[in-house]
């Protein structure tokens, strides 16, 4: 029952998903989204597959158990004249329904262990970014890229002005009007996104400045807590250029819901150009006002330079 059932249900599920969303190049999250996204990094497929496989296993077990229960409820009704039997024990059955779950669990545990092992391996990264959580914004510091240290490229990233004005109590503004291009970015846009290259193993070192936050971009496949006094490490390798949005995922005070994360992935040449600009700006202190004005410019400008749709 196990592997065949898994595969069958997985295929059935995949067919259903394809029918619902197949071919639609939509950014996530989107309305009526039913399942986890596949993600855009080399690793993000792991949680996606585990989610689908374990969901499939649960659906099959659920159909068997609830099916048996409903059959019992129809066959053994007193109103149909059913007479209660006396037995309360069946060793064979009990051995079977203890062993089968154990086998299923071993399979799932095997798959999950592989996923943890690959996630934990942050060695061989080509770039390092330090992420710091503040109440209620993020700070990104570029540490090194392709073996060269980067100096003085770092900035704060906080909720964009339009979302911030709209989200005030009694603002009278419409959340549906907060858009970048066709995409609604209410509470999912920032003034200055994190820019990274594609096809590069990027190591994130994550910490918190005041309370615990959690850095989560669903398209990268993981979240990791930003804890004061502790430096956590994780990695990603984004496959496609695009804009990937996420949010703080650990309650961090009143504006916990208002500190989004935006990662813009650029092709390697575009990123090199962007990085050079940033380094030039920070190298010339006289140009600081200009840098500030760039930072304050609408995020639309920032994201418009990136391809409009994620994947």
């Amino acid at each position: 029952m196990t592997s065949g059932g898994i595969r069958r249900s997985f295929t059935a599920w995949a067919a259903l998903a394809l029918a619902l969303f197949g071919g639609v190049a939509q950014a996530d999250p989107h309305p009526y989204q039913l399942n986890m996204q596949r993600g855009a990094s080399t690793w993000s497929q792991v949680p996606y597959d585990l989610n689908n496989i374990s969901l499939g296993v649960c659906v099959v077990i659920g159909i068997l158990v609830f099916g048996a229960m409903f059959i019992a409820m129809f066959r053994f009704r007193k109103s149909r004249g059913a007479v209660a039997e006396k037995w309360s024990h069946n060793t064979m059955l009990e051995i079977v329904w203890t062993t089968i779950p154990v086998i299923i669990l071993i399979v799932l545990a095997y798959l999950a262990t592989g996923g943890i092992t690959s996630w934990s391996d942050t060695t061989g990264s080509q770039m390092t970014v330090k992420v710091t959580g503040y109440q209620w914004k993020w700070r990104y510091d570029y540490v090194d890229y392709l073996g060269k240290p980067i100096s003085k490229v770092g900035f704060m990233s906080k909720l964009d002005t339009q979302s911030d004005q709209t989200r005030q109590l009694g603002s009278g503004m419409d959340p549906y009007a907060v858009k970048v291009g066709d995409e609604n970015t209410y509470l999912l846009n920032v003034d200055k996104p994190l820019v990274v290259p594609v096809d590069t193993k990027i190591r994130f070192v994550i910490t918190g400045a005041d309370v615990i936050h959690s850095w989560w971009v669903p398209a990268l496949g993981w979240k990791l807590d930003a804890i004061p006094g502790i430096i956590n490490a994780a990695w990603t390798n984004i496959k496609e250029p695009g804009t990937y949005r996420g949010q703080c995922a650990e309650l961090c005070g009143q504006d916990h819901g208002f500190m989004p994360i935006v990662v813009v992935a650029k092709s390697k040449p575009d990123f090199a150009k962007w990085l050079a600009e940033q380094e030039a700006q920070s190298a010339a202190p006289a140009a600081a006002p200009a840098a500030a004005s760039t930072a304050a410019a609408p995020a639309a400008e920032q994201t418009a330079t990136a391809p409009a749709t994620a994947k």
Partner: peptide, 21 residues
């Protein structure tokens, strides 16, 4: 579905993609 689509818990407000559910 909301969780799978990426809505964090303990937030008082959310993107319009989460509105229906």
């Amino acid at each position: 579905f909301l969780g799978l689509a990426g809505m964090p818990r303990r937030i008082p407000d959310y993107n319009v993609a989460f509105a229906n559910f």
